[in-house]
Design a protein around this nucleic acid. Structure first.
Lengths: 155, 155
DNA sequence: TATTGTTATACTCTATAACTATA
DNA sequence: TATAGTTATAGAGTATAACAATA
């Protein structure tokens, strides 16, 4: 196992700070999201479908770290809003396939436009160096979000 | 206003990725927190009191990006658990002052110990360079969480 | 009249348990 | 028996609206 010789104390402080920042950012995102009609997780699911293509509800649930019944609800809501299609799996009749609609693509495009406007405003508050740092951190945070967590976390 | 000449497209992609990573991490934190008896926000409030010293419920609510009634509930819960003291303000009888108890300090210490064990396990999944990136990003994310957000976000 | 905090209430998101249908 | 998904239900966390006390 790759186990670098790192300073535990500094990492603990970093994770501490990361954790509270992440919590507060989540609360801000809930209120200041660019699209009022979609919850953050619904947006996240659309993003996943955009990146990965059609997926089953179960696999979506695993990717989003949500339980299957929650994903059932989320997908149903997205279907009601016309952003997602729910079709039977061609080979296994137990499974279903969730895919984006054209409307979802248009919505993602519009949302992207709004996010750019939001960013243009926000950019005034961060220096270019700070933005560099965030750009570098984004993929690491994504990796962290997907990393299999050791059982030790429960001890 | 400090407005660096930055590449909008790259920042939009970074924020997009940050957002979904933050959402997923929040869900994981909810389940894999080191202290089972405290919600993430309760932990965050204790951390803020530790860093800033005694504060009023209103100021705590602003710092945590929560509405005042929510903070009333959180503080009441922490008081029930013996982690916080709620006293009248010496000068203004409308205000109250929330402060840590000795028990809270002991709990934070124990929680820090557990977090170190969790980190020792987690370290196997990230390279030293990735940890460097996270350490650098932590203060920027904290800043982002506290940045006054422009009205443009609602448009 | 403005400010600090609280009470009462409702909503959103997510989870667990039990169930159906298919493999 | 095992797997994919759903239904029914409950819980945690937060918000808004209305209110009380003090400035």
């Amino acid at each position: 196992m790759n186990m670098p010789d790192l300073s535990q104390g500094e990492n603990a402080a970093a994770v501490n700070s990361l954790r509270s920042a992440i919590l507060r950012l989540t609360r801000r995102l809930r209120h200041q999201r660019v699209d009022e009609s979609l919850s953050p997780t619904e947006m996240s699911v659309l993003g996943t479908l955009f990146r990965c293509g059609p997926l089953g509800p179960g696999e979506l649930a695993r990717k989003e770290h949500v339980q299957p019944p929650s994903m059932t609800r989320i997908v149903a809501m997205l279907e009601t809003k016309g952003l997602v299609r729910l079709e039977p799996h061609p080979e296994d009749r137990r499974q279903k396939v969730v895919s984006q609609t054209e409307q979802a693509e248009a919505m993602l495009e519009e949302s992207r436009r709004k996010r750019n406007a939001w960013l243009a405003e926000l950019a005034g508050g961060l220096s270019e160096e700070e933005w560099d740092t965030l750009r570098a951190a984004a993929p690491v945070l994504e990796k962290l979000a997907h990393l299999p967590m050791p059982e030790a976390a429960q001890r």
